[in-house]
């Protein structure tokens, strides 16, 4: 059984009295430590699928399980707890809390988990060091570049060492060099920590680096391909750029 199991997933939206069928029956199993990308054209249901897997949205039909727990049976509070303890989110627009510094943004999740101050600061600083932002720890997001903000967002997502990280178009607002560096970082974390990464993306660079590429068209899985892990080695940004 996979870490994430999706069975008969359907999601319909009502928009101006018209039913929009965003997801039309998806079955998936994603294992621990996978580095997967969900790709497809706009409106194919990538983000909707990611949101449902992350417990941010409820399916119209079907079920999603994380480690055997059916998300449909959880209360909003239990879903909050699940997101807090087991899932990290990375958003396209970084979505950091603007009044908190980089360090505090990373600490935030640990603070919610009740980790004591010393431990919190130690772990958060270690993560910032890992994402190359130790020197920017006390800057607020407004004083950081887009790439730096997204690295803080990655730090926030991984600091509590969740099983799963869901990244919605994480490179969409970044230039190619920064995007490649961020992917290197996430890939390394995936290898080192065995954290499951699931991206929704348009970005061919992300698709090329994913070990598994799930391609959606009109809310259905069009193709689901797995590639050899050897395909991925850590590349320097220059190499990434050249390849592009």
């Amino acid at each position: 059984m996979g870490l994430i199991t999706v069975r008969g997933l359907v999601k319909n939206y009502e928009s101006n009295g018209i039913t929009v069928r965003a997801i039309r029956g998806i079955d998936l199993a994603i294992g621990r430590g996978e580095f997967s990308a969900i790709a497809g054209p706009s409106g194919s249901g990538k983000t909707t699928l990611l949101n449902i897997i992350g417990g941010l949205d409820r399916p119209t039909e079907g079920r999603v399980s994380v480690s055997g727990t059916d998300l449909g049976t959880l209360s909003p509070r239990e879903l909050s707890e699940l997101r807090l303890r087991r899932i990290g989110f990375i958003f396209q627009a970084y979505n950091l809390i603007p009044v908190l510094t980089a360090l505090e943004n990373v600490e935030y999740v640990l603070l919610l988990q009740g980790v004591d101050r010393e431990e919190r600061t130690r772990r958060s600083m270690a993560i910032l060091r890992e994402v190359g932002l130790e020197a920017e720890a006390h800057r607020v997001p407004g004083k950081l570049s887009g790439g730096q903000q997204q690295r803080v967002a990655v730090g926030r997502a991984i600091v509590s060492e969740p099983d799963i990280i869901l990244a919605d178009e994480p490179t969409a607002n970044l230039d190619q060099k920064t995007g490649a560096a961020l992917l290197d970082l996430m890939h390394e974390l995936n290898h080192r920590r065995k954290t499951t990464f699931i991206f929704s993306t348009h970005d061919s660079m992300v698709m090329e680096r994913a070990e598994r590429l799930i391609y959606l068209v009109d809310g259905s899985v069009d193709s689901d391909r797995t590639r050899g892990a050897a395909h991925f080695t850590r590349k320097k940004p220059a190499a990434a750029k050249k390849r592009k």
Binding site: G54, L56, P76, R77, S80, E81, R83, L84, R85, G88, F89, F91, N95, I97, P98, Y108, V109, L112, Q113, R156
Partner: peptide, 14 residues
């Protein structure tokens, strides 16, 4: 609104 949405997404309780 967006900020609260993010907070709720990453595990902040209502």
């Amino acid at each position: 609104t967006r900020e609260f949405g993010v907070m709720l997404s990453i595990g902040t309780t209502p």
